Deep mutational scan, measured.
Amino acid sequence: TEEVEKIVRELQKRGVSQEEIQRILKRNGIDPRDVEHVVRRLR
């Protein structure tokens, strides 16, 4: 989703690792598959 993408991009800008990003998003109830998808697209 748009929202997830924004969050991921923001965290990446701050130098947060992929694993940490995924952990944060999972904690916020976001589907890990969505996270994977977004992270892969932004690489």
Rank of each mutant, 00 (worst) to 15 (best):
D34T: 14
E10L: 08
E36F: 02
E3A: 11
Q18K: 11
L25E: 01
S17M: 04
R40W: 00
G29D: 03
R43N: 14
D31N: 08
R27L: 12
H37E: 15
Q22D: 08
K26T: 13
I21V: 03
K6C: 15
V8E: 00
R40F: 00
V35C: 13
E36S: 03
L11V: 00
N28I: 14
R9S: 05
I7V: 08
R23I: 11
T1M: 13
L42F: 00
I30C: 13
V38Y: 01
E20L: 04
R23K: 10
E10N: 06
V8K: 01
Q22T: 13
G29R: 01
D31R: 04
V16L: 12
R14H: 09
V8A: 07
T1A: 09
R23M: 08
D31W: 02
R9C: 13
G29N: 05
E36A: 09
L11H: 01
L11K: 00
H37K: 13
V39M: 15
E36C: 08
Q12E: 05
D34Q: 11
V39S: 05
R40S: 10
I21A: 04
K13M: 11
R40E: 14
G15L: 03
V8W: 07
E36M: 05
H37A: 14
R40M: 00
R43H: 15
N28L: 14
Q18V: 15
R43D: 15
L11Y: 03
S17W: 02
E2N: 09
R40K: 11
V38N: 01
K6I: 07
E20S: 05
H37Q: 13
I7T: 05
E2H: 10
S17C: 11
R41T: 02
I21W: 06
K13I: 08
D34R: 07
R14Q: 10
K26Q: 13
D31S: 08
L42C: 15
V39D: 08
V4P: 01
I30P: 01
K26R: 10
E3R: 09
R40A: 08
E3F: 13
V4A: 05
V4K: 01
T1Q: 10
K26H: 12
K13W: 04
R14V: 06
L42Y: 01
E10D: 09
V39T: 11
Q22P: 02
K13G: 08
I21G: 00
K26C: 15
V39F: 11
V16Q: 03
R33Y: 04
I21C: 14
E36H: 03
R23V: 11
K26M: 13
R14N: 10
V38Q: 02
E5S: 05
G29V: 02
K26D: 11
T1L: 14
R40Q: 11
L42Q: 13
H37F: 08
V39K: 08
K6T: 06
P32M: 06
K13C: 14
V16Y: 12
R27C: 15
R41K: 11
Q18L: 15
L25D: 01
G15W: 02
S17N: 06
L42P: 12
R27S: 12
E19T: 07
E36L: 05
E20I: 05
H37I: 14
I24G: 00
T1F: 13
Q12F: 15
E5P: 01
D34P: 00
T1P: 10
I24V: 06
G15A: 03
N28F: 12
G29K: 03
L42M: 05
P32A: 08
Q18A: 12
L25K: 02
G15Y: 02
D34A: 09
E19W: 09
V39W: 01
I30T: 04
L42E: 13
I7L: 11
R40Y: 00
R9I: 09
E19I: 08
V8N: 00
R41C: 15
R14G: 06
V16S: 04
V4C: 14
E10C: 14
R27V: 12
K6L: 07
E3Q: 11
I21R: 00
D34L: 15
T1G: 08
R27H: 10
L11S: 01
V16H: 12
E2D: 11
K6F: 08
R43F: 15
V4D: 01
K26Y: 10
H37W: 07
S17D: 07
V16K: 08
V8T: 02
V8S: 00
V35W: 11
E10Y: 06
I24D: 03
I30F: 14
L25T: 06
I7S: 03
G29E: 03
I21K: 00
R23D: 14
H37D: 14
R27G: 13
V8G: 01
R43E: 15
R27N: 11
